[in-house]
Write a protein that binds this DNA or RNA. Sequence first.
DNA 1: GCGACAG
DNA 2: ATCTTGTCGC
Length: 228
Amino acid sequence: MPAPLHEWNLAPKEAMALQSQLAKRLEMTDRLAPVTHIAGVDIGFEEGGEITRAAVVVLKWDPATAPDLSVVEQVVHREPTRMAYIPGLLSFREIPAALGAFEKLSVMPELVMVDGQGVAHPRRLGVAAHLGLWLDLPTIGIAKSRLYGQHAEVGEQRGDWVPLDAGQETIGAVLRSRAKVKPVYVSPGHRITLETSMAWVMRCLGRTKLPEPTRLADRLASRRDQRK
DNA sequence: GCGACAG
DNA sequence: ATCTTGTCGC
């Protein structure tokens, strides 16, 4: 029987078609409100993958102390895992839980950093871009490895970077966020340009490879720092 | 047909 | 992502 499919339970083929449609709605120009709070988002799993755990950390933006930013709020939301991981369809697996976490937030940020790709995706809708549309907030994707696009080797000094290209368009940047450490893949999600994305990522970079927002969200979602 | 493949 | 201890290096 024909299954009434809602956005989070689509078959791979339909999900891919939806991504192409949603990507057309992405705003690739800067439309940010003055930034006072930045959020980091990451997803983890428990019970052998049966439970999806979304973590969101909100930091107060203070140019005077950056990259040392104070944590204003942090929430963890758990719910049954919906679908298996399929390269290219990550957002359908992680966004439902992420939205649940955002609903519990009392302080809404003006900028969100997500663990994963923004538009550096085969159909230009990585998890950061997809989440940006749902939240209607500027989002930046910061991935620890490459999904799509080609690039030259990156210099080995902190701050060195090279463009991540797909054909004739630049979809992101490969940034050496920490000397001698594997670079991160930065790409805009929604309502922000690559240039502005890079500026914010670099401003939030402490001594580690990941910018503070996603580094803290990563820790929260991973369970080692936060048990139970 | 043979790889590549975010988390 | 997750399963897992120690160990090399700044």
